[in-house]
Simulated assay, not measured.
Amino acid sequence: MKVRTIGIAALLALHGGGACAAGIEEMKPAAPAAADKAAAARTYNLPGHGALQLQVPQAWRDILHQTSNELPPIILFTPTAGEAFKIAVTPLYPHSQGMAQPTLADMRKSVEMAVEEARKQAVEKEIPIQELKGPSVTGYYFSVTDKSPKPGEYKYMTQGFFLAGGLAPTFTVLTNDGSENIVAEALAMLRNAVHVTKQ
């Protein structure tokens, strides 16, 4: 499935900013291998905005892609072993003075917009929006199947948006057949996200 990270440009336009994350359509599947499912805490520093802490399966490797010093990074996850997949997480935060944090209503609207965009190439006629809820997380997501994935693209996509403390991360999970567990593991990781701030 050829997609872009969810509603970021639209959301930042709503709050007076510009687009802050690159598209992820260039991602290609990694070679399959065997996987270990154990998870451990990893912390991703966000200069001036604390850090995002995620419980990441040990068999996943990560890359922190910083587009500029002012804008949020993109955290990319791929397998060191196991079925091919790609996950992108962008921990949004206010990057200019006076820029408000998005509300849950803002997030729901952005997810609804992403659903309508995904519907154009999805198998599903009905695409329900699900709630993402964790100890310090509240948000929304949806899942779709690409009706005609091209070579090198992914068949399944789960995409969403949530609040975690002072952060508003967006995420996209791309998988193929045989990777159903990856979506469950990714959602578990995101439900347990923590915004770490300095004491």
Rank of each mutant, 00 (worst) to 15 (best):
24 I>A: 02
179 S>V: 09
156 Y>A: 06
104 L>N: 06
164 A>Y: 04
100 A>G: 07
80 T>S: 11
122 A>P: 00
14 L>E: 10
61 R>L: 09
3 V>L: 08
75 I>N: 02
128 P>N: 05
69 N>F: 00
34 A>G: 06
56 V>E: 02
80 T>I: 04
175 T>A: 10
56 V>T: 11
70 E>D: 15
195 H>S: 04
96 S>D: 11
198 K>V: 06
171 F>A: 00
46 L>W: 10
156 Y>T: 11
45 N>L: 10
68 S>E: 03
191 R>I: 01
73 P>H: 12
131 E>F: 04
36 D>Q: 12
15 H>W: 15
170 T>F: 00
177 D>A: 12
10 A>C: 03
62 D>A: 11
110 S>K: 04
49 H>M: 02
157 M>V: 09
80 T>Q: 07
7 G>P: 01
26 E>D: 09
176 N>G: 15
126 E>F: 11
40 A>T: 12
168 A>Q: 05
66 Q>H: 13
162 F>K: 00
135 P>Y: 13
150 K>M: 07
125 K>H: 15
113 M>F: 02
45 N>K: 15
155 K>F: 01
55 Q>F: 04
148 S>E: 12
42 R>I: 03
38 A>Q: 15
12 L>C: 08
49 H>T: 03
161 F>L: 09
24 I>T: 06
150 K>T: 06
93 Y>N: 00
11 L>H: 08
188 A>F: 05
